[in-house]
Design a protein around this nucleic acid. Structure first.
Length: 553
RNA sequence: GCGCCCGUAGCUCAGCGGAUAGAGCAGCGGACUUCUAAUCCGCCGGUCGCAGGUUCGAUCCCUGCCGGGCGCGCCA
């Protein structure tokens, strides 16, 4: 019996109580059934009676009794106690609890998948770093978290498109092109230009592949530096992200918006909705109508469109591609965008609460030898994605970035995440998986197969540590669904750390394989099912974070 | 000044209104002839920033204050 099954049983009990006239209340849509910290409070507990007491106009403990009565009749439920002010403490039959191992093994890669978000078409835009330099650490947080988020959303039934908005138009690209040309000519970096070793590298590559680049004058040369530079930079960005395990379904070019006339189309659309006005020779969008703190310029006095107008066109483009929800993952230094983006959606006639979501990730600082590592794309002495992967490996980097709530700023100590010790949570989890894998290898060498599922005797898994492990395994689908719903993939990492600990503690006291010439008993086999189920969940969970599940360490 | 985020054990952080607030690290003390000790067990450690409010019940929701981070361009 899974927690979801039990939740259904509780709701069925409420319905039964209502049908029999014992209770007069609207049956809730879902119910929270949780594992109590204290084992004396049963295998599962719910505070539903406390919540129903007021609408039912009855004392909580009375409500609890009316629900408990039919719930006790549920197959697999051993006992239901009423505790405290009106909690229901539920104890399962040993077999019903152990049954979960079979469920998990049977579901295998699908264990953890739910349909809580079925039918939702989500556009998830993240990283979107400008192609004027390598991906820096701030964007890497979202590469790790965004990709994990995409995975938990998908696991919950949503249809997700990972998208990278590629700003290949605008003045920063001009500055990039000028910087490359200056580097190629050994001239100093232009004012507001980009500097750093990568500029020299790219400039050299371009000159090497086009020795005649300066033949048709500076203007033509700069065009080429710009175009070729963006291509090379973009290829580098895409490769470094791929090495990090992150690939996008759509790389969207800003240039395309300009070339297809989507900026004008968006402007007309906004005008038709009556939110556009002219002032001081510029064209503005009245975003303050929808809560932005100031109105925004769409077209400058000189007739040049702003980056903001491209943002409007891009949003419209996403909506016209059929996404019901556009999620933007931005760094804290861009949180000022939230108000205007929401206003954009509203100006197009959308309800921003429904169609748009902006998630803000606080800043990441890298620390090395106790000293903060400076990051600046301009100065060129920043730590890039590739540096971080070189320093601590893709697994540790992804895990380190994904295990914290995006709401809190983090200092990542490169030394710590390099260590192969217990301080390093990714090793703790991966080690648990390697230990499981090793045990299963030994089982197979001893020719002890899991055997026929019908021969599995779940009621033998009655040890406290087995119960703890089964309970933890049962939580997984709900953890994933919650991570998706709240857009908080770090919950998966924290869960895995707990599961790993629960497994280590089980392993410590519950011998799984027969020793020496011991007979293989049904208990050995039952525990093997439990271990196999643990393997499935650790592997599936790590996969959601994009972290490998090693067979050996 | 306005806006967003944060404030929980010595440190780094979990905890989407429930029972006695948790984990890792650090500190102290234990467990390896036994399936991977990259592990496990015990001890030590808290006015959940402060003050009000809502609630049967608040670390969680609301208001104000204090402290810290970030942001407030016809830049991108």
């Amino acid at each position: 019996m899974t927690p979801a099954d039990l939740a259904d049983a509780v709701l069925a009990a409420v319905r039964a109580a209502v049908d029999s006239g014992d209770l007069d209340v609207a049956v809730p849509g879902d119910v929270k059934v949780e594992r109590p910290k204290n084992r004396e409070h049963g295998d599962y507990a719910t505070s539903l009676p406390l919540q129903l007491a007021k609408p039912a106009r009855r004392p909580p403990r009375e409500v609890a009794e009316t629900i408990a009565k039919p719930l006790r009749e549920t197959p697999g439920v051993a006992s239901v106690d009423i505790a405290g002010p009106g909690f229901l403490n539920i104890t399962l039959e040993p077999g019903a609890q152990g049954e979960l191992a079979r469920t998990v093994v049977a579901a295998d890669e699908d264990y953890g998948r739910t349909s809580t978000m079925a039918g939702q078409r989500i556009n998830l835009e993240f990283v979107s770093a400008n192609p004027t330099g390598p991906v820096h650490i701030g964007a890497v947080r979202w590469a790790a978290v965004g990709d994990a988020l995409a995975r938990v959303l998908t696991a919950s039934g949503a249809e997700v498109t990972r998208e990278y908005y590629f700003n290949d138009a605008g003045s920063q690209i001009d500055r990039f092109g000028r910087s490359l040309m200056a580097a190629a000519q050994d001239k100093p970096t232009p004012e507001d230009g980009y500097a750093g070793a990568y500029i020299d590298d790219i400039a050299k590559q371009i000159v090497a592949s086009r020795p005649d680049i300066f033949d048709r004058g500076d203007e033509a040369a700069q065009q080429q530096f710009r175009a070729a530079g963006v291509d090379l930079m973009f290829a580098e960005i895409r490769d470094s992200l791929a090495d990090f395990g992150v690939t996008f379904d759509v790389y969207f070019n800003e240039k395309e918006l300009h070339e297809k006339g989507e900026l004008d189309a968006a402007l007309e659309r906004l005008r038709s909705h009556g939110h556009v006005f002219e002032e001081d020779g510029a064209v503005w969008l009245r975003t303050t109508t929808f809560g932005d703190d100031r109105d925004r310029v769409l077209v400058r006095t000189g007739g040049e469109p702003t980056y903001f107008l491209a943002d409007c066109a891009y949003y419209l483009d996403k909506r016209e591609r059929g996404f019901d929800r556009c999620i933007y993952l931005l760094g804290a230094d861009h949180h000022g965008y939230v108000g205007r983006l929401r206003a954009v959606a509203a100006c197009f006639g959308d309800d921003p609460d429904r169609t748009l979501e902006v998630l803000i990730g606080q800043l990441v600082n890298l620390v090395r030898d106790g000293e903060p590592v400076r990051m600046s794309k301009r100065a060129g002495d920043y730590v890039a994605l590739v540096d971080m992967v070189d320093a601590i490996g893709a697994d540790a980097a992804r895990y380190a970035l994904a295990r914290y709530s995006s709401d809190s700023p983090i200092d990542l100590d490169l030394d710590l995440w390099t260590r192969h010790t217990n301080d390093n949570p990714v090793y703790y989890v991966q080690y648990a998986h390697a230990r499981v894998a090793s045990l299963l290898r030994n089982a197979s060498e001893l020719a002890i197969p899991l055997g026929d599922p019908d021969a599995f005797r779940p009621e033998l898994l009655g040890h406290d540590r087995e119960g703890d492990l089964l309970g933890a395994l049962g939580e997984f689908p709900r953890v994933v669904a919650t991570a998706a719903e709240l857009r908080e993939p770090h919950r998966v990492a924290r869960y895995l750390e707990e599961l790993a600990g629960t497994y280590h503690r089980f392993y410590d006291v519950c011998r799984v394989l027969p020793r020496g010439d011991e007979e293989t008993t049904d208990l050995h086999r039952a525990r093997l099912w439990l271990v196999e189920a643990t393997r499935v969940v650790l592997r599936n969970g790590l996969a959601l974070l994009g972290v490998s599940a090693p067979e050996r360490m």
